[in-house]
Computed example of a mutant assay.
Amino acid sequence: MSIRLAEYKDLEQMVKIYNQAIETHRCTADMDTFSVEERISWFEEYQCLEYPLYVYEIDNKVVGYLHFTGYRKGRRAMRYTAEISYYIHNDYQGQGIGTKMMEFALEKSKEWGYLPEVADFDGEVCSHLYYGLKI
């Protein structure tokens, strides 16, 4: 078992895993599955250290992935805040992989019960009463 940064070679398996999540109608708001080609620009968008993609491997096979996404992207006051999403191949669910991926994500983040001073309105800093993570 290992968690590492995603590479292009992982994209096909990541798309397969995400399409499984779409088909369950429980894990994502997407309703239509994707081809690998349709997810290339999405993958490339995450090839930065700000909001990275990570894969979870067992015996060199990608069986899950997680990523950080800008929370309320485009709203400058929330530019330092992100949400975490993760997906696990159907055949590997119920084995604690989601827990391990969330533990990994939390190690990369500072956790707290509300978002203190995350909104910066041109120097006026405000807090939000949410549960969340600051990365």
Rank of each mutant, 00 (worst) to 15 (best):
L66C: 12
I17K: 15
Y114P: 04
Y54G: 00
D91T: 06
I3V: 12
C27W: 05
V15N: 02
E50T: 14
P116W: 06
D32K: 14
I88Y: 00
K73Q: 12
M78V: 07
G64T: 05
I22E: 03
D91N: 08
Q95R: 09
L133I: 15
N90F: 01
Q93N: 06
D30F: 02
A105D: 03
D120T: 05
T33I: 13
P52F: 01
Y18A: 12
H89K: 06
S85N: 08
I97W: 02
T69N: 09
D122E: 15
M102A: 07
R79Q: 14
M102R: 06
F121V: 03
D59H: 07
E23L: 14
K134N: 13
D59L: 07
W42N: 11
T33G: 12
M101H: 05
H67W: 02
E57Q: 06
K61P: 00
Y80C: 11
A77F: 01
D120S: 04
E103A: 10
E23Y: 00
I88A: 00
V62R: 02
A119C: 14
V36P: 05
Y46T: 00
E44H: 06
V36L: 03
Y46S: 04
Y92C: 13
E45F: 14
G94W: 00
Y8A: 08
C48P: 00
Q47K: 04
V125W: 02
K100L: 05
I58Q: 15
H128C: 11
K110I: 05
D59G: 03
P52H: 08
R75M: 09
E50D: 13
E107I: 06
E103G: 07
Q13N: 12
D91Y: 02
F121K: 01
M78F: 07
W112P: 02
Y130N: 08
S35G: 12
I17T: 14
V118P: 02
H25M: 09
E44G: 04
P52W: 00
G113H: 07
N60E: 12
E83Q: 06
P116Y: 14
Y65F: 14
F121Y: 15
G96S: 08
H89P: 02
G74Q: 10
P116H: 14
D91E: 07
C27G: 13
V36D: 11
A29N: 14
G98T: 06
H89I: 01
E117V: 07
E12D: 15
F43A: 09
D32A: 11
V55R: 02
F104G: 05
R75G: 05
E57P: 01
E7S: 14
G74P: 09
K73N: 12
A119H: 13
V55P: 04
Y80V: 13
T81R: 00
G132L: 11
N19E: 14
R75N: 10
Q20C: 05
A82F: 00
R39T: 10
G123R: 13
H128A: 12
M101C: 06
L53S: 07
R4N: 05
V62W: 00
S41C: 03
D91A: 08
R79V: 12
Y65P: 01
I135F: 13
T99S: 09
Q47A: 05
D10M: 06
Y71D: 09
